[in-house]
Write a protein that binds this DNA or RNA. Structure first.
Length: 362
DNA sequence: TCTGGGGTCCTAGGACCC
DNA sequence: TCTGGGGTCCTAGGACCC
């Protein structure tokens, strides 16, 4: 989906179409520590980007309309999208709240483009939501093609056109190549995907390990088979809650109180999802933006707030203890995370899966 | 020009086991 | 008395994605 949160909001505020709109908390008073969640293309034309600090966005687009985020609306809208997509593809794998991979078998690039156009039109006419499409025999290339098609485009890359399509793109166009890897590659003068094909493989391996070989294959237009297929959907592996203080603090009682609040809230969410947890991690981001974390594996799966609150408070105290009398930095953000999640009635589903797998083997 | 909140995956060292 | 090679689990940290 294109500028998804903004697009979802514009359905309710059609008079704002064609203007600079930003989804995020408008910086005001003390509460000015947020970032932009989504910006309309008119706002992007002014230099506003998602993840940009809201105060910077405010400077670039002083007249933009700000809309506070409403995640339940975006979840609801995502379900509508999902339902519509089901009419067009047998297999759909949601990749995030605003992205999905669709699998379809068609005869020619022209047919694929027409198929995508039909879906695009339906999304626009029935849900008033703009979307872009990328298509390829390789799912990772489809994603890159989709990014290249934004906003509102369709890009079909036939299998034998893969290398030619990828070649001129910057390495950062590849999902998984972020700022750090881009910078490391830049040091050996690898900037485009074509450069990846030409670079000495030994130098790439020194930089990236085994990942170098799969990158090289992708760049040569021959991605590994697992990059051609849709990823498997699976249950959540972890649930977490992050909160940034309005002002950095060293007040231990304030910090611990917040940790306990967060742990309680997190546990209630897990309970409503029917999930048990067996791992707890607390992370502190200090005023200098570095992070420290401490985790603990519980001896058994737990449900409810009691264990999560107790463990996260203990872990937080230990982190603070370690900092005290050392650098004494103030705390900016807290994170409480529950991992090793299992569905309620823990092992039973696995036995059922085993039984049905055995039955289908016959 | 100050940097949110929710996730996934990978690496690496140490403890421990056979 | 000093020792190999394989494995798993736990913990911490980091890169990356939307």
């Amino acid at each position: 989906m294109d500028a998804y949160y903004v697009s979802a909001e514009l359905r309710d505020r059609p008079e704002l179409r064609g203007t600079a709109v930003i989804v995020g908390h408008k910086p005001e008073g003390a509460a000015n520590r947020g970032v932009v969640l989504s910006a309309s293309y008119e706002a992007r034309a002014l230099g506003v980007r998602s993840a940009m600090p809201t105060v910077s966005a405010m400077r670039r687009a002083p007249d933009a309309t700000w809309i506070p985020p409403d995640f339940s609306k975006y979840e609801r809208t995502a379900r509508e999208i999902r339902k519509l997509l089901e009419r067009w593809a047998d297999r759909i794998v949601p990749l995030s709240i605003d992205e999905a991979a669709l699998e379809v078998e068609l005869g020619s690039p022209e047919e694929v483009a027409a198929w995508a156009r039909d879906i695009q039109t339906a999304l626009q006419e029935e849900l008033h939501l703009p979307a872009s499409f990328g298509a390829s025999p390789y799912s990772i290339v489809a994603k890159i093609a989709c990014d290249a098609a934004k906003p509102g485009g369709i890009r079909v890359v036939a299998g034998d056109a893969t290398q030619a399509f990828l070649g001129p793109l910057p390495v950062s166009a590849i999902p998984g190549i972020g700022p750090k890897t881009t910078e490391r590659l830049d040091r050996i003068e690898v900037r485009t995907i074509d450069d990846l094909v030409r670079a000495p493989i030994a130098a790439l391996r020194r930089l990236l390990g085994e990942y170098a070989d799969s990158l090289r294959a992708l760049a040569a237009g021959r991605p590994a088979p697992e990059l051609a297929t849709l990823p498997e959907g699976s249950g959540p592996r972890q649930r977490s809650l992050d909160r940034t203080f309005d002002r950095d603090t060293r007040e231990e009682s304030e910090i611990l109180q917040r940790v306990e609040q967060m742990a309680t809230e997190l546990a209630e969410g897990l309970r409503s999802e029917g999930l048990h947890y067996q791992n707890v991690v607390v992370r502190i981001r200090w005023e200098d933006f570095t992070q420290l974390q401490k985790g603990h594996q519980l001896s058994a799966a737990h449900e409810g707030p009691e264990a999560l609150v107790r463990e996260s408070a203990r872990l937080a105290r230990e982190l603070l203890e370690r900092e005290r009398g050392h650098r004494n930095r103030a705390v900016r953000r807290l994170s409480v995370s529950a991992g090793e999640l299992t569905a309620r009635r823990g092992r039973q589903p696995m036995l059922e899966e085993f039984a049905s797998a055995a039955a289908s083997d016959k």
